[in-house]
Write a protein that binds this DNA or RNA. Sequence first.
DNA 1: CACATTGGGTAGTGGCACTATCTATGTTAG
DNA 2: CTAACATAGATAGTGCCACTACCCAATGTG
Lengths: 205, 205
Amino acid sequence: MRISELSRRSGVPTATIKYYLREGLLPPGRATAATQAEYDETHLRRLRLVRALIGVRGLSVSATKDVLGAVAAHAGERHQVLGLVLGARPVDEDGEPAPAPGSADVDTLIGELGWQVSDHAPSRAVLGETLETLRSLGEEVSHEALLGYAALAERTAVLDLDQLDPHADPVDQAESALLRTVLLEPALLALRRLAQEHESARRNT
Amino acid sequence: MRISELSRRSGVPTATIKYYLREGLLPPGRATAATQAEYDETHLRRLRLVRALIGVRGLSVSATKDVLGAVAAHAGERHQVLGLVLGARPVDEDGEPAPAPGSADVDTLIGELGWQVSDHAPSRAVLGETLETLRSLGEEVSHEALLGYAALAERTAVLDLDQLDPHADPVDQAESALLRTVLLEPALLALRRLAQEHESARRNT
DNA sequence: CACATTGGGTAGTGGCACTATCTATGTTAG
DNA sequence: CTAACATAGATAGTGCCACTACCCAATGTG
């Protein structure tokens, strides 16, 4: 199909599609001539995926590019992909591992839980920073509470992985995992909010 | 204290503080003269809170204003506050309840769980939209899985509420709840990512 | 009473996600 | 075969947002 059909079927203006092509969010079509290119279903799917990541989850264009790049680079290594980027901190100038400043607290917690995660997982830093900020605002999260949250996170992760189709090919599986990891985030937070409202009402009897 | 001290103690430039004052994120100081106003510790705390919501959680300035306004308006009605705005959809032009398009799925789920949440909780819509988007991408979340996530969300909420100090005054309690609800979000998502990486590695033996 | 500081207001900046326009081709209906 | 229309690719422009810089009259301060 040509760009106008891609646009019509996705609801995304052609100008925006061209923009995504320039930014590398969408692979170029197969050029048939100097001013003609052919797109297929994979482009359409990718475009919808990009829109979902940007629109539903609120990722920036560059973060979206990083995420998609990570999936492409590590497809087949599911756990790598799952631990990756996403919320992520900008990497060092030189694009290297990034020191992972992860506070001692976080390291201790992960050790206690027996979790095996790579040293430079950006989530370590996110976790550390968030807890540090809360502490500075006088809202320390106790170690026990943290263990409780971690246990629930672990069960959530089990649920996440149970939903992957083990027969799908690695690339599809990685993409599916990505989609569910990232796009379910707003849903999980919404569930928490609703549960809080319910629980709070319950306690106030 | 005067604005320069507020700036020095918070690390926020005076120009930015003035901006927040204009935007209503920070209440004006007590004016002592035409070109002089006095700020106190509550301003400092509020300023740090604003910075945390914007910086750590990534809320926009206007969303931050809405959140803080909601807390002020509903302090004392903890469950109202907890269910409120936050991630939120922009309200209708007229600022009314907003129809809450919440899909039938979501209503069913909430009914099944026996949760008591207000009809116009924005989280309903967020949840519905997210699930709908995933479905359109061919990643349907089964009803059973959703029930599983909801159960975990409920336990998370219990943990959240357990950490509130029942002796604190309602306003402080509402603020504390807000802080923990909103600021813990990145931390909870980070825990999920780490848990996914661990669980995925574990399964791959 | 000289002078740096402040409150309040207005205008400017840089980044981001598009969006519009232009040109040199291509395609296609008649 | 050609006139009308649709690209691809490039460049420039737009609107919004979160600041940021500057200006002024009015202070407070040594």
